[in-house]
């Protein structure tokens, strides 16, 4: 059973001015030049490979990290690679102001937790060395257990799939 409370370093996917980047599409997350790759482990090193200022993200990311993203994250194509590359890096959750519709479906099917947080306290999050995210309640805490903000919790359906590992693993039960 996968944990429903996850702890890791927060990454604010922002521009040079510190503003969260909106409308990051699947080509910026995972460029179409690498679509022929089918082994998720290999996908890891191309995550954000086409997002200005974030090209070296796969070298900096560590298992357990949590991403905080802007509006319409994952807009564009239906490629599953744009979800799988983060799972391969060990990213445990993505908290965003909003997500592209197909990206959302793909992420749920792959068991990557996405949490909606329209009012993102960017300045507060930036100062935190570590966050704890409760996927069931949406509660986000700082390193000393202090309450920071509450995102929309994952739906029961998304949690069912997350706990099983993926939609197909749930079906295999």
């Amino acid at each position: 059973m996968r944990p429903t409370v996850v702890t890791g370093r927060p990454w604010l996917i922002a521009d040079e001015a510190g503003k969260l980047i909106d409308d990051i599409d699947t080509d910026q997350i995972y460029h179409n030049a690498h679509l022929a790759i089918t082994d998720p482990k290999e996908m890891a090193r191309y995550a954000f490979g086409n997002l200005k200022g974030w090209e070296d993200f796969p070298k900096k990311a560590r298992p357990g990290d949590v991403l905080f993203v802007g509006e319409n994250f994952g807009a564009g194509s239906s490629r599953q690679h744009a979800v799988d590359c983060f799972l391969a890096l060990g990213i445990v959750a993505i908290v965003g102001r909003s997500f592209g519709a197909i990206y959302r479906r793909n992420a749920i099917n792959s068991g990557l937790p996405l949490l909606l947080l329209p009012d993102m306290p960017v300045a507060r999050l930036r100062d935190l060395p570590q966050v704890t995210v409760n996927l069931e309640t949406g509660e986000i805490q700082g390193p000393d257990g202090e309450k920071v903000v509450r995102a929309e919790p994952m739906s029961r359906v998304a949690l069912d799939i997350y706990r099983a590992g993926s939609l197909l693993k749930l079906g295999a039960r």
């Binding site: 959302r104 479906r105 749920i108 099917n109 799939i161 197909l168 295999a172």
Partner: peptide, 18 residues
């Protein structure tokens, strides 16, 4: 729907929907 979704539906007779 996509091929992952439909494979799941073939197996279980259900799927999730927003």
């Amino acid at each position: 729907m996509g091929d992952v979704d439909i494979a799941y539906v073939f197996r279980t007779g259900r799927t999730w929907f927003e």
